[in-house]
Structure formats: structure tokens, C-alpha cells
Write a protein that binds this DNA or RNA. Structure first.
Length: 567
RNA sequence: CGGGGCGUAGCGCAGUCCGGUUAGCGCGUCGGCUUUGGGAGCCGAAGGUCGCCGGUUCGAAUCCGGCCGCCCCGACCA
């Protein structure tokens, strides 16, 4: 391929809107261009990278026994209503109407479509296990696109769905995908941390996320420095302190805390540290109210609470509801003297708090000297708080380290949520009808491009791993007007391409500096220079982008030498 | 959606507070000459609804109101 005929619009300066490295460099290198917030075009170079990533995924999926299909982007509303997700899916699917006012959404994910597909044609246990996948554009009306390709409204995703008759089959299908993912990221050269996670709006269990450690990521994960336990912040568990035994002391004492509606304010008024306070949050689930207790210096984790209460309509109580239930205004709620009907749930840590400050359930007052289990009873102690950097690991004597990460893939077990709703049932070996048990496995293909760019770059530009580089070799012909040099360069290009090494010949009518800068910016793994030195010595210069290792070679030796350097 | 920032030539920016000639600068683009191994030099040229709509004013890039777009921080996800 000749650079002089290639669409290669590199930018000397990054557009102002790009902040993170991958976004900046992908724009500058002429890989992508933005059309609107979270909507991008892939230019020839970017598309080559995207296709490389796809191809790695495709071969490993096929190897794992999954079969590729292509499902529609346009999904009829009725299908989504059968699973209740027309309104429940977050972020909300993009919706369109046809000329007859029939409603569709642009597929944000394909559980409904694939399950419906399988429901129509799979009727016997003999037809499973079955794993179908596709590589396709997904649409999500993201609340806030950000970070170039990191979070967008329209993106390429590989999504796979497995169907089995029993849990054992699901386990096998799940493991096959898990292993395939490990191989995929290994081949892509992308180091991933596999973490425990929540399933989000898809529903499911045994959720694992494949994370690329990076400051531009949107997730926080915790990794134990000793045992390797790792989990998304949404479900990371820290070891609570040993619970403390208490004796009945004096009854809690009412103190005046005028206008102290926040933990900070109460601490200031009473001169006490926040870990001496118990924060009482009032939640509503259906017609039921719950008082949720966490230590004053902690944050409640909503995922954990929702997971414990298992109430689909869980929400914080309104100020009016709080007043009605506790008898006091917002900011002064406490666990003492609540109506019997209010459940009291506490984070494990509360069990070791003594002599605590709690809200008095009346305006401008708190109670001092409250002891859990003595002055009030707790229905259940469970892990409800947000883990923080430096917390003790729940599984060993190690310490949890907080890190930022980019989620690039996700595997989890769906169970029968979709098969039951969409009648994907088969006869088992006894002739009994059973809903298929599903697993779901996603990879953010275009996001991987961003993640690789985040990880592999330096001050001069991108540094693509060979597996995904748009071209393996950039051959810089510094004097395109010299016919002898041009012939050498073209011969080397032909040799390399014949050897299966994708090569772009930079024969543009540009100065040497421009070609060097562009080659560095674009990040070709190997650069070969044909220039004046070649005319003098008959040799060309090879340089590896990754570490700058150089070598000289005669034209007929270039293929072998390039192979060595790219290995 | 809440908070913050920004919108002037393809890209990066100045000018806006304090209204007043023909709206500037760097890069890029086009033409010419020179140059030619790390984003060249000189000469010449093209390129602008100053995001949009309305208002104030003799006069608006600049002041006021509304709207749109983009980026960043927060709650969601691949």
C-alpha cells in the first residue's frame, strides 16, 4: 500500500475536545473522526485496527465452538415489552418509528432477539449446547458519552449467548467463553484484570468483568495485594472489624445539634470523629420502609443494598416520607424509637461501634451513647458499605488497593430470565418442558481499540502491538524522486507483502521529518528507512517502534530481519 | 439531568472584561523559487454567516435574553 494514495489525514495538533491520550492520538493519527458527541467514523487506519481486533475475537469464538450470526439492529417494541425492558433498560434504548407509527428500538443488546430466534427453532435438548455470537453495532442513549471511544452512543460489540438445558451445561458453556476471552486478550497483547462484578440491568450471576487497568477508565476496582481477590467497587467486600461486646451502660442522652443535618455538621457541633456516628438512611421498597445503618465515615453501596433487599423498586424515601415514618425531619433520623414496621438493616461494621451518636428522630437533636444491640436491635448485619483504598481484604490478611480500570468485556450467567419470558423451552430427555438456561458474554470491540491506545503510547504517538497494528511495517522512502531508491523500496514492499507482512510504503512528496513524525504518531511496530544512506551503503535501516532497537540489512535480507524484529 | 468550561478560517489560539476603521496570529492549503534523514526558508494567494435567533445601540465577535452544539466532573455500561 502506498501512503501517497492512502487516506491518511494526520493532525499536527489535537482538536481541543480530546483530553485523554487514546482520543487525542486516535484523532491525530487519522484513525477516527467524531461526528457528534459519542458518535465516530473510523478512517481506513482505524478500521484496519478494528478489523484486526474483530478477527482475533472471531477466530477464538469459533475455536470455542460458538457460531457467528448477524441479528437486526431494529427491534420491535413488542419483543422488548415481553421482557419488561422497553422501559426498564438503562440507559434507555434509542427509539424510532416507521411510517406506520410502529415503534422500534435500535438494539442496545440482543438478549430478546437471540432468545426469540432460538425459541422458534430449538425444541429439543438434543439441539443444545448452543452458543451464538455476532459482531455488530450497538446503540445506547448514553447519558454522557466520554473519552473518545471509551463511552459512546454507537459502538461495535461482540455479543454471545449460550443456551443449555441444565446448570452443568451452562457451567461448561460459560467456562468455554471465559477461556476464549482469556486467549483473546492474550493475543491482543492487552493485560486484563478479571474481577467479580454485578450484572447490572441484564440480570444474572457469576458475573466477571475483564478490566484494563488505566486512569482513564470509568470503573474503580479493588485488588488484594496478597491473595489476588479482585472485584468491582460495586461489590468489593472488605473485612469488618471484630464485633465488640458491650454492657448496658447509661441510656443514650439527648443532645442539641441545631441545624446539624449532615455528618460533618454533627461532628463539628459535638467535636467527635465521623466513625463515632451512625448514619441512618431511610429507604422505601414497595410499601415497606427500611432504616439502613452505616458508620458515619462510610458510604452506603446501593448495589449491595439492592442485592440484599431484592426489591425491584427500591429508592430513598422522600423527605415527607421520612418525617411521616420517623417523626423527625431529614438529617435527624436514627434507629432508636422507630415504628416496629421499619426494618433495621446495618452494615457489618456497625456491630463494632460503641457509644455512638445517632439521630434522635426529632429536629435539631441527636442521641449520644447509643450501643447497637443494647439501645436498639438490628434485624441483620450484612456488608453494605463502599470499600475504600487500604481496607483489609475479606479473604486474607492483605490490603485492598483501589485502581481505575476500563471494562472491556463481561461474562455472566443469565439463567432463565429471557427464555422463560420468551418461551424458549425444550423437551428434556424425559419429555419434560424446560426453559433454556442462558449465559451472556460481551466484548466492547471499539472500546478495546481505545484501551490498547491508552496502554500503548509514548510521547511521540501510538505503539501498536503487532497483532492489531494497521500495518506491520512502515517503509519510509525519503527520496521518492530517486528512481534507484524507489525501485529498492518497491521491491522490499513487494517482498514483505509476499511474506504476509502488511506494509505501507511512505512515498509521499514530503520531507523526511514529516514521514518520521507520522510513522511515530501512527505507531507502526516496525519502520524501515530507504534513503541516502541506502544509496551509499546499499543497506536499509530497520527500527522497532516499541523500544527503538535498530538493525541494518541488505534489501534481500529485509524480510528475514523484519521477521526477527517483529517476533 | 445537576455542576463547571468552551464555541472566532481545516487545526491550535488572540481579540470579548472596557462596543468604534478593512477581525488578527501560528500551523495547514494553493502558486513560485530554494531546500531535502526528524513536522524547512523566502515571496505571493485563497480561505470567516465571529455557533444560531432575537434585543439594546448611530454602530455588536464584544452588552442583554433565549436556543443549539462540544468537552470535563457526578449517578449508568462494552
Amino acid at each position: 500500500m502506498r501512503a501517497s494514495q492512502y487516506y491518511l489525514p494526520t493532525l499536527r495538533q489535537a482538536p481541543a475536545e480530546a483530553e485523554i491520550a487514546s482520543h487525542r492520538l486516535l484523532l491525530r493519527g487519522g484513525f477516527i473522526r467524531s461526528l457528534a458527541a459519542g458518535v465516530f467514523s473510523f478512517l481506513p487506519l482505524g478500521l484496519r485496527v478494528l478489523r484486526k481486533v474483530e478477527e482475533v475475537i472471531r477466530t477464538e469464538m469459533n475455536r470455542a465452538g460458538a457460531m457467528e450470526v448477524l441479528m437486526p439492529v431494529l427491534h420491535p417494541r413488542e419483543l422488548w415489552e415481553r421482557t419488561g425492558r422497553w422501559t426498564a433498560f438503562q440507559p434507555c434504548p434509542l427509539r424510532v418509528k416507521d411510517r406506520n407509527e410502529r415503534e422500534f428500538c435500535l438494539g442496545p443488546t440482543h438478549e430478546e432477539v437471540v432468545t426469540d430466534l432460538v425459541a422458534r427453532d430449538v425444541t429439543s435438548y438434543k439441539q443444545v449446547p448452543l452458543t451464538l455470537y455476532q459482531i455488530q453495532t450497538k446503540f445506547r442513549d448514553e447519558i454522557r458519552p466520554r473519552g473518545g471511544l471509551i463511552r459512546v452512543k454507537e459502538f461495535t460489540m461482540k455479543d454471545a449467548y449460550s443456551f443449555d438445558v441444565d446448570e452443568a451445561g451452562l457451567d461448561r458453556s460459560y467456562l468455554a467463553m471465559y477461556d476464549a476471552y482469556v486467549r483473546i486478550f492474550d493475543r491482543l497483547g492487552l493485560p486484563v484484570q478479571i474481577v467479580e462484578a454485578e450484572a447490572g440491568s441484564m440480570g444474572g450471576h457469576d458475573t466477571r468483568e475483564f478490566m484494563v487497568l488505566n486512569e482513564s477508565g470509568e470503573d474503580t476496582i479493588f485488588i488484594c495485594d496478597t491473595c489476588g481477590y479482585s472485584a468491582n467497587a460495586e461489590c468489593a467486600v472488605a473485612r469488618p472489624p471484630a464485633s465488640t461486646s458491650r454492657e448496658r451502660t447509661e441510656k443514650p442522652r439527648l443532645v442539641s445539634t441545631p441545624n446539624a443535618k449532615t455528618i460533618d455538621a454533627v461532628c463539628a457541633v459535638l467535636g467527635l470523629p465521623a466513625d463515632q456516628l451512625i448514619k441512618t438512611l431511610i429507604y422505601r421498597a414497595g410499601e415497606e420502609f427500611a432504616a439502613v445503618l452505616v458508620r458515619g465515615d462510610r458510604e452506603l453501596n446501593d448495589f449491595k443494598l439492592a442485592g440484599f433487599l431484592r426489591a425491584p423498586d427500591l429508592r430513598m424515601a422522600t423527605p415527607e416520607e421520612i418525617e411521616q415514618v420517623t417523626g423527625g425531619p431529614v438529617g435527624f433520623s436514627g434507629p432508636i424509637g422507630l415504628p416496629e414496621s421499619v426494618r433495621i438493616i446495618a452494615d457489618c461494621e456497625i456491630a463494632s461501634v460503641t457509644d455512638a451518636v445517632v439521630g434522635a428522630n426529632q429536629a435539631d437533636a441527636h442521641l449520644v451513647g447509643a450501643d447497637p444491640g443494647v439501645d436498639f436491635q438490628v434485624e441483620t448485619y450484612t456488608d453494605l458499605r463502599e470499600a475504600v483504598h487500604g481496607d483489609p481484604c475479606a479473604r486474607c490478611a492483605g490490603t485492598l488497593q483501589a485502581k481505575r480500570a476500563i471494562e472491556v468485556a463481561h461474562v455472566f450467567k443469565l439463567g432463565t430470565k429471557y427464555s422463560a419470558a420468551l418461551d424458549a423451552v425444550v423437551d428434556d430427555e424425559h419429555g419434560e418442558q424446560r426453559p433454556l438456561i442462558m449465559g451472556c458474554y460481551g466484548i466492547g470491540v471499539s472500546r478495546i481499540v481505545a484501551a490498547i491506545a491508552e496502554i500503548y503510547h509514548d510521547d511521540n504517538g501510538l505503539v501498536w502491538p503487532a497483532a492489531v497494528a494497521p500495518f506491520q511495517v512502515a517503509l519510509l522512502l525519503l527520496d521518492p524522486d530517486r528512481e534507484d531508491l524507489r525501485q529498492i523500496a518497491e521491491q522490499i514492499t513487494a517482498d514483505l507483502e509476499a511474506a504476509g507482512c502488511e506494509t505501507i510504503l511512505d512515498d509521499r512528496d514530503e520531507r523526511a521529518g514529516v514521514k518520521f513524525k507520522d510513522a511515530d504518531l501512527i505507531g507502526h511496530p516496525l519502520r524501515i528507512v530507504v534513503g541516502r544512506k541506502t544509496a551509499e551503503t546499499g543497506e536499509v535501516e530497520l527500527q522497532r517502534r516499541r523500544d527503538g532497537v535498530q538493525a541494518m540489512a541488505k534489501p534481500e535480507e529485509v524480510v528475514a530481519k523484519a521477521g526477527e524484529l517483529l517476533a
